[in-house]
Design a protein around this nucleic acid. Sequence first.
DNA 1: TCCATTAAATTCATCCGTTCAATTTAAAGC
DNA 2: GCTTTAAATTGAACGGATGAATTTAATGGA
Lengths: 410, 410
Amino acid sequence: MDSELLGYGPRGLQSSARDETATERVFQQIRADGETARVDIARDLGISPATVTTITADLMARGLIEETAARTNATVRGRPRVALQLRAQAHVVAGLKLGDKVTTLVLLDFQGRQLAETALRQPLHFADTNTIVQLISKALDQALAQAGLSRADLSAIGIGVPGFVDAQLGLVHWSPILDRRMVPLRALLEDALDCPIAIDNDANLLALAELWFGVGRSIRDFIVVTIEQGVGMGVVIGNQLYQGTRGCGMEFGHMKVQPEGALCRCGQRGCLEAYVADYALLREAEMALPLVPAGSPDRLEKLFGEAKAGNLAAQSIFRRAGKLFGIGLANIVNIFDPELVILSGEQLRYDYLYSREVREMMEMNSLELGHPPVELRLHKWEDQLWAKGAAAFALDRVSRRVLVGGAQNA
Amino acid sequence: MDSELLGYGPRGLQSSARDETATERVFQQIRADGETARVDIARDLGISPATVTTITADLMARGLIEETAARTNATVRGRPRVALQLRAQAHVVAGLKLGDKVTTLVLLDFQGRQLAETALRQPLHFADTNTIVQLISKALDQALAQAGLSRADLSAIGIGVPGFVDAQLGLVHWSPILDRRMVPLRALLEDALDCPIAIDNDANLLALAELWFGVGRSIRDFIVVTIEQGVGMGVVIGNQLYQGTRGCGMEFGHMKVQPEGALCRCGQRGCLEAYVADYALLREAEMALPLVPAGSPDRLEKLFGEAKAGNLAAQSIFRRAGKLFGIGLANIVNIFDPELVILSGEQLRYDYLYSREVREMMEMNSLELGHPPVELRLHKWEDQLWAKGAAAFALDRVSRRVLVGGAQNA
DNA sequence: TCCATTAAATTCATCCGTTCAATTTAAAGC
DNA sequence: GCTTTAAATTGAACGGATGAATTTAATGGA
């Protein structure tokens, strides 16, 4: 059984390859707390105040952080702590969500505050890369104008793309918005826009948004599931976005929940997506419900209306979708055992038809191991949050670049 | 959407909490290579030869490593490199696999070499903890006698237990071999045997065995799946055993592969296990095949014989099991995207009935993303390897304890 | 108003792990 | 036996982090 004669134990590096420097940890602490004094940093990170002074002085000299104006503890004796914060002007990034119907963009400063927001209602179906570039340019210019900034002020752009994306390589394996496979989108956009770009799957970035700005900030392990055009998932384990092994795992939408089941747009049968995605619901509606004519823009709303009005066929469409969705969720929950599952996406406007079935199925199909069942939370659909996730991704890249660079940027 | 007014970014520690010390890295390097010279360690770890000298001198003074007798490069000029290796006598550990039919134990020295092996064919079904303690004692004494050692020579004992095990807490949530739930097995055994104990799910430890001693040593991401009494899975991601979020995730056997499907012993319906585990196959055989009488010890072999002989009912049992197993595997592969899947376990004696269906289903249900399909490998069932995994777990604990202890152990 | 008290921040000598450069050691080749 | 080559060791030097002492900035009471 031994693959080698000598030795045992794994060959690769056990832990993270690069040790995080004290500077990085201090920076992250300030970023996470928003405002925090040197004493607190020393206490929280378990390093000496002397070190904190050295590091923060360096970060201030480099223009990344600043002391806040507000002095807080007027009630206590002693020298008041002076809080530190990220310097808002240090960097500005853009975050985009490319969607099939709407493209949303936000501008964030280094403190994570939103400077501007735009939404362009241009449909994207199998578009060529030129269209994408122009769309992004337009959105950027609008938002920059709002904020009174120019392209040169942008330090990075983060972009969420539906489909299979390899974030590391900046490669889009397949996306419903692109007209071909294997598009090296990052390189392409960096050439066109002359700005560092970071791309990832949109569901991953929504999970990142929850991790950085939302409920996930204080939760170590959670999952974000989205239903709209397709079904997506982002997984956060141990306060970190789980990227899969090759950067594009997590293909929840194509989990098989019904052997020999419905045909999916991926060509396989029984995929979860083939039961719960927009196109899947509409496909069924076309079969059984002439009341929902093809081509009308709000067909899903019509279908939903029918179900609410008591149409049994319409109801059964949602009911089956809910059941299978619940089974798929239970499978994922059994594997990852998270504290929280966040459901998000357009389709959750139909949540009360969903939620009963889904919760029921989740509970029926989750293993009992003493601990309480997972919390299930619905988040209304907000493109703006997706875009903030993309911006967070960009901010992360910027701060990493700036921090490892160190002295030469001073 | 913001959960707090100030700051952004995750609150917890981003990377591994504790930085790995240089000493630990050097030790792991020597362990992984079996024999390696100081120059090579310096080159491989990117640290200076001077540091390696310091650290290895310290490790030698503490009796953990030693220089090998063999001088190798007689053909090259210059001072010959002297290889270092772990000192075999430094520690001895035991590794056990508690199984429903057989309990296997191996003794390993610090070099990972097997000193002794025993197997006790005592069935374990819902046994009380006393029985377990006595069984382990007996196995230990036999093996120690073989090796000419005593209990006092043991530095730790690793134990693989079927069922839901929380390795961190040393707690068995549920196991088919124990008569009650929530058994604090580690504390219990530490009291009874007066030796540090480490317990984990048996499939996890088989994955660890593959990682430490087997094919997994040079593969970053792989999955081990076992079929015997139940269905188990161990996942290795980034050269590390993935433990789930609460120490007992990974419940592959209870993935739902058929909505409203067959009843599983966990009480739910449609679990993978309810189609492919021993008891599931036999349940079907009882229904349709009076040729396979209940109570006979080799019923599975009989069923297999029937299938080989052309009995259509018997064949259909295996065929369905294979199909659903393939679907379940494909789901897991789509999520984790590993390089390799290792199938192991008793039932793989029936592999050629399985493999065709399984492979077919895997390929039909795996997403295509450019990279080649996962490699699927069958490993014959060897209780001894499971036990070695348990021993590896123990060795890991011992070396961690010894290395963090540092100077005071000198 | 002034000074004691309290607590935060800073300074600086010191420590410790690591490295560089020089040296020693151990072999082969001629 | 001397030169060459390469591994291992030694010791001075470096740099990040710390502890102790000091400075700074506030409150509270005389």
